[in-house]
């Protein structure tokens, strides 16, 4: 089995797929930044941000359901913000009694909690659209365009190249463990050994994964040397952004800025 399911990229011919990756990258960051700066309780702005990202999802011809399903994976973290509902001072809204405790939810607390949830939800959708419509090499180009150091970009590139190889390696290790230890799906049959023993076995697997990675990196280095590698990460110069890309970039940034100005004027 190969782990190409790891790659979230969905090939396509939509306008979003064709948009220059640098523009997409910058706009995704700008969108998330705008969402972060939008004050608590600016519901109108949240609706517009959600409409923007949903609109882009429709345009990208990814199915909206697919994006929302992926977005749901990132939601459990919202638990971290839940206590704020009951601890922020303000007008009490409802009382939740759990056994001997009674928790009073305040209106500002609720507003803050819902705002955090929406911000997080629209931001993760924007990130999903970026990852699903942009191939990794194009993301690397975008990173170069925003002046990420070349060495770091090379490490990212090499990691991506070998990610699938090593994930396959990890899956082989796990399959070997499964065949050795004869796991059963039958209910009531516990996994064998003590917890510490199971952890140590897993540790041994991790150790051999790292040893193999070291040895592989040696071979890769030799192969690179044989092809004339001298430690310098060379790459083609970036092409200039096309006029249309500039227009899309400027218009979108202006829209986000306008939304933000409105949000800050009326809700701050």
């Amino acid at each position: 089995m190969h782990v190409h399911f790891l790659d979230p990229y969905r090939p396509g011919q939509s306008p979003i797929h064709k948009l220059d990756s640098r523009v997409k990258f910058v706009l995704t960051l700008a969108f998330i930044f705008a969402a972060a700066l939008t004050p608590t309780g600016a519901w109108a702005i949240y609706i517009l941000l959600l409409a923007l990202v949903l609109g882009v999802e429709v345009l990208s011809e990814l199915r909206v359901g697919y994006v929302l399903k992926r977005a749901a994976l990132a939601l459990p973290f919202i638990l971290a913000a839940l206590p704020i509902v009951f601890t922020m001072p303000g007008e009490p809204r409802f009382i939740l009694s759990i056994g001997p405790w009674a928790l009073t939810a305040s209106l500002p607390g609720l507003e803050r909690f819902i705002s955090i949830a929406i911000k997080s939800w629209v931001s993760v959708q924007a990130a999903i659209v970026l990852a699903s419509t942009t191939e990794f090499p194009d993301l690397l180009m975008a990173m170069r365009a925003v002046r990420v150091p070349r060495l770091l970009v090379s490490i990212f590139g090499l990691m991506w190249r070998y990610l699938f190889v090593l994930a396959d390696e990890a899956i082989r290790l796990m399959r070997a463990r499964l065949s050795r230890s004869g796991v059963s799906d039958q209910a009531g049959l516990k996994p064998g050994g003590s917890l510490a023993w199971r952890a140590r076995v897993t540790g041994g697997m991790a150790g051999s994964l790292f040893v193999r990675a070291f040895e592989r990196s040696d071979r890769i280095y030799m192969a690179m040397l044989a092809r004339g590698y001298d430690g310098e990460a060379r790459s083609e110069p970036l092409q200039a952004l096309s006029g249309a890309s500039w227009v899309v970039l400027a218009l979108s940034l202006f829209t986000l800025l306008a939304l933000l100005v409105f949000a800050l004027l009326f809700w701050a």
Partner: peptide
């Protein structure tokens, strides 16, 4: 570059 790239993948 090869060492860190492959170790990051690992």
């Amino acid at each position: 570059v090869p060492l860190m790239g492959v170790l990051a993948a690992a």
